[in-house]
């Protein structure tokens, strides 16, 4: 059916994509399949270490992330969807480049090479760099009429020690505009969602999340689209504003625009049901 050549990538899901944000994972896989991007899950991957390992032990944090790098077969880029996982994986690679001794120790410990030139990229970047033509040719349903706030969260393009790495600001708008949606400016797009404080200090996070969602309401957006699974969760579970907006994973609106039909399974997992909005815009039946 498709005229595209299949492109292979290694894929690191991470704990959120595998569990709380399974709907993001499913819809991303669906979109990738339509675009002939073959995401091959890393065999026996482990948690990237997250902010908890980063807080309590730098060696542990480095080791957790580096083990995943040792599992990546050479010759194809490693793709992550979770911005924090991406950050820790890249951070580990940068550390190993600087410290050949630790690099050699870890390689010997696991008996596997850890390639220092492995390309580690976000799924958004895969689309922009490898699939812009496919994207245009594969639009089926489109997203006409959907006004969205691109909510990047705090991590996708910011941490300074990755300053030389690619910056993703604007890419979500570019992609979704191609698919027919209309980006809305003037709302909070990369203010922190509260991260783990949502679990430990919810009373602190709720007003911040409300400010983010309220800013989107004021800007007259229909919804927010996030590039981060944890942001999506926090924006949904911690918002108690009077007017609440649906919060989509980026992958969901992407797959929807490309004609995916299994969206019911994703949307029932949302706390704010996005289906009435999509029905109103006649995007779904």
């Amino acid at each position: 059916m498709s005229a595209h050549q299949q492109l292979d990538f290694s894929y690191f899901p991470g704990c959120s994509m595998a569990t709380t944000a399974a709907e993001s994972n499913t819809s991303m896989m669906k979109a990738a399949k339509i675009l002939d991007l073959n995401l091959i899950e890393l065999e026996d991957w482990n948690c990237c270490g997250s902010s908890s390992a980063q807080t309590l032990c730098k060696n542990l944090s480095l080791g957790m992330a580096a083990r995943n790098l040792s599992l990546a077969p050479p010759g194809r880029p490693l793709v992550a969807m979770c911005p924090r996982c991406l950050h820790y994986l890249r951070h580990a690679q940068a550390c190993l480049r600087k410290d050949p001794e630790i690099h050699r120790d870890l390689e010997e410990r696991w008996g596997r090479p850890i390639p220092l030139d492995l390309e580690i990229i976000h799924f958004l970047e895969v689309l922009v760099r490898y699939a812009p033509d496919r994207l245009k040719k594969s639009v089926k349903r489109g997203l006409k009429g959907l006004k969205f706030v691109p909510y990047y969260g705090c991590t996708v393009f910011r941490p300074p020690d990755l300053g030389q790495e690619k910056c993703y600001e604007g890419e979500m708008e570019n992609i979704l505009r191609v698919l027919g949606a209309e980006p809305i400016v003037g709302a909070y797009t990369h203010r922190c969602c509260g991260s783990f404080l949502s679990a430990t200090d919810p009373e602190l996070v709720t007003p911040l999340v409300n400010e983010i969602v309220d800013s989107a309401v004021l800007a007259e957006a229909h919804c927010l689209v996030t590039a981060c699974a944890m942001c999506q969760l926090n924006l949904e579970i911690r918002c108690n504003s009077l007017v609440r907006l649906p919060v989509f994973h980026f992958s969901e609106v992407l797959a929807l625009a490309l004609g995916a039909e299994d969206y019911e399974g994703w949307f029932i997992r949302h706390l704010v049901d996005p289906r009435p909005l999509l029905q109103k815009l006649a995007l779904v039946a």
Partner: peptide, 9 residues
Amino acid sequence: VCAGCHTCS
């Protein structure tokens, strides 16, 4: 309380 969002940086 710092969540490491790097806004300050």
